[in-house]
Design a protein around this nucleic acid. Sequence first.
RNA 1: GGAUCGGUAGUUCAGCUGGUUAGAAUGCUGCCCUGUCACGGCAGAGGUCGCGGGUUCGAGUCCCGUCCGGUCCGCCA
Length: 589
Amino acid sequence: MLRTHTCGELRIENVNTTVTISGWVQGVRDKGSLLWIDLRDRYGITQITIETEKADKSLIEIARSLGREYVISVTGKVLERYSKSEKLPTGDIEIYPDKITILNSALIPPFTIEDETDGGDDIRMKYRYLDLRRNTVRKNLELRHRLSIETRNYLDKLNFIEVETPVLIKSTPEGARDFVVPSRMHQGEFYALPQSPQTFKQLLMVGGFDRYYQIVKCFRDEDLRADRQPEFTQIDCEMAFVEQEDILQTFEGLIRHLFLAVKGVQIPELTRITYADAMNYYGSDKPDIRFEMKFVYLKSAAAENANNLVNGAGFKVFDAAQIVVGICAKGAAEYSRKQLDELTEFIKRPQIGATGLVYARYNADGTIKSSVDKFFDEAALKKWAIAFGAQPGDLMLILAGEQNKTRKALSELRLEMGTRMGLRDKKKFACHWVIDFPLLEWSEETSRFHAMHHPFTSPKPEDIKLLASVPGEVRANAYDMVINGVEVGGGSIRIFNKQLQSRMFDLLGFSKEDAEAQFGFLMNAFEYGAPPHGGIAFGFDRLCSLFGGADVIRDFIAFPKNNSGRDVMIDSPSPIAKTQLIELGIPLS
RNA sequence: GGAUCGGUAGUUCAGCUGGUUAGAAUGCUGCCCUGUCACGGCAGAGGUCGCGGGUUCGAGUCCCGUCCGGUCCGCCA
């Protein structure tokens, strides 16, 4: 061993012992007659001190030749410091070296290896191995490690076993685009990388492994975001002989265990909200319920809660709208004209696409001032206030238009207001289930139904009768777990019966032949005694970023790709040699 | 595929309605300094203003194109 101790462990008890530590030079402070070296490794920083008037000349020469990030080994005596540092755990001691060995020199790093680095994202990605030396990045990966260990502990105790599934599999048309891998031995044919181990975990259920999990890489060839990578990691789970309730219980147990074990946070039992309610009250299938600010409808498309308070006043925008819906921002009546204009601009951005924002201030003196006073008198506005549950001092923000678009826009506005009002504290965690997702989703683009979750999702038994008549209204035994407005996991009870599965393929527009060619293996397996089963998969990277209080998952992946799917460090993807292409039988145009 | 913001010293950024020699901080180099720990002080080096074209007497600045990066929509569980 080139060390007896790490750079993080020496304490006052070690004084007067001779030790050897190795690491990277964080910095040198040369004060003439005194010279200090901060030596860093994964575990901490230890100070090396040289008194240049007493020390060996060659030692001083070596010390003065050191640059940042040189790798050195130091042997010397641990002594109590003359002036101690509160900032370092090793701050009570320092090492007087007898010997300094330069194990390797280093170029000057392009950015500083400090918590508050001067490097931007781009340069840090290119030199990721240097970025990994920084505390902040290292801590993120340590957090990831803890989460994976605790996941395994929890699931192992419940008799789950981790089984690996293949990475070179078969392309299927449903869902995301596949990454494909050409086969040399079978020219013109391709493997695909799994978007998830979905079918394999179901086959494991047929194979009698009634509790399976895997922390596994998945691949999707789609455009990226701050919280999306082309390859990402899932905690993939499946159970047999269970109903939806069992899955919800088991895996909210997992999340609560992780919060307790890793963060020491006690999470209450998860609340549940139906997809329909989530859309109705929050305009989103992954609402952030750290704060309330539920939607209030002044006019609604649904007959049952059509408390229409806006029609007939001569305001065409409201009269023509399918819905008029708003939120009540508590205590925000003080918002200035400028702030309201900012909000209007916010909802008019093309990404959000609303055409205008109506506001009504419930002033502290009890009067109400709105942007549509021309059409609505004080009495009408008071009725709005009652509907909104607004008190003097509150601000009502109202959008109107077609249902889906308007809900979506208001959902964005709600989140924006939550942020502006400081209601989205990253240290607070609100976890809940969204249940009863629709089974199918109509696609205008392809003029057919798509599976909302995936084609193996089981419809709710009581809704099966609707499959023939109104397939769009059939609810699925599907569920998502949402934390702070982030979808961290989702799953479903699966179809385990060949007839129902082929009926689903029918609805999804598969021909018998296509279904057979693509999923025949699964349907065949279902004929050999498939148990009822269901499961869930968690986005592990997202979970890590959430635990770490960040929005960007890149910081929790050792070697991430950038926004356009490139690894700027190794420079991939890259062209391959002509000979490789010929071998694969792939002509490039 | 679309929207939007950005690209200037090794790095992070400033640079106004176009106008002399493009600045700051940090990092780097040298010298000084006995208790520093973001050490301090003094001096110094360091620039294809992403790239190409255009407008103009004159472009880091304006226009067009292009490449690269960030965020978002579409897409994606």
